[in-house]
Amino acid sequence: MAEEKGKKERETDMLVPEETYMTSGVHIGTRQKTSDIKDFIYKVRNDGLYIIDVKKTDEGIRNAAKFLAKYDPPKVLAVSVRQYGQKPIKKLGEYTGMQILEGRFRPGILTNPNSKDFFEPEIILLTDPLADIQALHEAENIGIPVIALCDTNNETRYIDLVIPTNNKGRRALALIYWLLTKEILREQGKIKSDEEFTAKVEDFEAEI
């Protein structure tokens, strides 16, 4: 009975309080808005910044965790050209066993069997479809599904699942990847409760 109640609460509540998303700047978009992203936008601020609906961010993280947990971790590749995404994906890799590629994405990694670090993932996770365009092109070439953190200025071409979020901020990226890591471990049955996940959000933050 108690378990059932807990389950129900989890379905209606957010992974963290809305304020936690706000203080990490997850909701802060850019001054650009693409038509692909309009459904994820809550409002435009007086200063012209588009604000992301963090309820949809929360939903996106849960769905991405469920999606990624269907795959064998070594067959998942997370990438980030963006500097502030590099520490968070390293942590994701450390805790989940997923593969990561940080920094420049050398052409051919997914498409050229002769390339020295050739790799054949079954699904890919991008930190920013604009910065990670090379990885997106190669994923498109080999026909694997794509999950991406998308800001208000991103298009979603060739993306199969969007996590709408500020994908540039240091603290925003740390929080998103920390939550995603925790939810993946929960989906995989490796942790049963939040308390079992002892990593802190700060551990996922890139150094300034």
């Binding site: 769905n63 269907k70 498109e140 070439n141 026909g143 599904p145 794509v146 060739y158």
Partner: peptide, 8 residues
């Protein structure tokens, strides 16, 4: 450019 996956 096509792909297949299990519904998230």
């Amino acid at each position: 450019g096509a792909t297949t996956f299990q519904c998230p």
